[in-house]
């Protein structure tokens, strides 16, 4: 599948991550991205490796996981259509602390994080929008993680 730039812009327009971007801003962002196909088991980011990319999921699912004894491989987040996968690109040292793995076949818009950071620096209005979106996303993910941290279901309700 080799989508044209217009296909990419059309796809991004439907993504919540790109809501309310102007046509110019969309084009600036699309210039940093490529529509890619993934297969189950594809490892997109590696624990401890660089986070030079991030993905906006078009269809399919990506797992955020951690491995090591005694728990082995543990999935702590599963991302679906519309979600942004890969967040460590927003701040130095741009290093992934988790594995990011495709659950099955799917598609995503893959962004070159360096290009996006450059575009954000060149167009502060775009940069403001992108980093605000990332802040919202990080907040939501922090809330979710804190809820998971409470281990609510393990210890409550005898019923």
């Amino acid at each position: 599948m080799t989508p044209s730039p217009t296909d990419l812009i059309a796809e991004l327009k439907s993504q919540p991550f790109c809501r309310d971007l102007s046509d110019t801003e969309l084009a600036e962002l699309a210039a940093c991205g490529t529509l890619v196909e993934v297969a189950g088991g594809d490892q997109l980011l590696t624990l401890g490796g660089p986070c030079d990319w991030f993905w906006v999921i078009v269809d399919g699912a990506l797992d955020v996981s951690m491995h090591g004894p005694p728990v082995g491989m543990t999935i702590i987040g599963r991302l679906h259509t519309g979600d942004v996968a890969g967040v460590s690109w927003v701040a130095e040292p741009f290093r992934s602390e988790f594995d990011l793995t495709a659950v099955g076949p799917g598609h995503a818009v893959r962004f070159d994080a360096r290009e996006v950071r450059r575009a954000c620096a060149a167009d502060p209005a775009l940069g403001n929008k992108i980093y605000q979106r990332m802040a919202t996303l990080l907040r939501d993910r922090l809330h979710a993680t804190r809820l998971q941290l409470l281990d609510l279901y393990g210890g409550s309700r005898a019923l």
Partner: peptide, 14 residues
């Protein structure tokens, strides 16, 4: 589920 292994087909998170 809050956490899973790779045989899990559902969601992971709250």
């Amino acid at each position: 589920v809050d956490h899973a292994t790779d045989t899990w087909k559902g969601g992971v998170g709250p």
